[in-house]
């Protein structure tokens, strides 16, 4: 108990930002469904709520996919125009976020491809995005991970393939559940999403395990 209280709360990290943005009024899924249904029926207020809630989240998401931020911004505008005009034809959903992520991602990738044809090879189309890492900045009173461990974990994070990185992004930074991640990746089974995250973490483990073994043997001796 005292233990939990004494641990510092990070506010510098991305997680802090996310909670600020979406955490104030975390709607339960039923109200997400209601909000989405209202929007589909043409309720302008519902549209503005959805826009305010997700515009920046989607912008940030797009910027993880490409370094071309003005493209992301253009995409974002087109995207909201699109869903607003097609509102009646959109399907129902009880989780707006993965729904938006999935179609926004498709739009960004399509636009990037279009652009790619013109700019030939040298482009902003960089699959090795989602530069997840452990920050060294955060100061801890009871630091558990040693510098060396953080270094190794970061090495491992850099080795992840783009899909694993993307899944880890959804899981840690967007707070999505495994079944929501499955929706974005078009997996028919939740377990595939779980596997993707696990696989990513298993890679971390591969790089990390030697070090752990070392610490444990020291600990025992």
């Amino acid at each position: 108990m005292y233990l939990l209280d004494s641990l510092p709360k990070t506010s510098k990290t991305a997680n802090g930002l996310n909670t600020e943005r979406s955490g104030k009024k975390v709607p339960i899924s039923s109200s997400e469904k209601e909000l989405w249904d209202l929007f589909r029926k043409g309720d302008e207020n519902a549209f503005v709520i959805i826009y305010k809630k997700y515009a920046n989240i989607l912008f940030n998401f797009g910027c993880q996919l490409t370094a071309d931020h003005s493209l992301v911004k253009d995409c974002l505008q087109d995207f909201f125009i699109y869903i607003r005009q097609k509102r009646e034809r959109l399907g129902p959903t009880d989780a707006i976020k993965p729904y938006l992520f999935k179609s926004f991602k498709r739009r960004i990738l399509a636009d990037l491809k279009k652009q790619n044809k013109q700019i030939v090879k040298e482009s902003a189309f960089d699959f090795r995005k989602f530069p997840v890492e452990l920050s060294y900045e955060t100061v801890y009173i009871n630091q558990q991970l040693e510098k060396e461990q953080i270094f190794r974990l970061n090495e491992a994070l850099r080795q992840l393939d783009p899909k694993e990185r993307e899944a880890i992004y959804y899981f840690y930074f967007e707070g999505l559940s495994y079944d929501q991640i499955a929706v974005i990746f078009d997996f028919s089974h939740v377990s595939s999403a779980r596997r993707l995250v696990y696989r990513g973490l298993a890679h971390l483990r591969k790089y990390f395990v030697l070090y752990l073994l070392l610490t444990f043997s020291e600990f025992r001796s």
Binding site: T13, N15, L17, N60, E133, S135, Y140, Q144
Partner: peptide, 30 residues
């Protein structure tokens, strides 16, 4: 505690649009 710290330290650069950029974009959408 390590796991907790891992999750807390996990970091990714964040990109945001300013309030006025967002307003601007919304008005263009509408």
């Amino acid at each position: 505690l390590k796991a907790k710290e891992f999750v807390e330290r996990l970091h990714l650069p964040q990109h945001t649009l300013e309030e006025d950029e967002l307003e601007d974009l919304l008005s263009r959408v509408v």
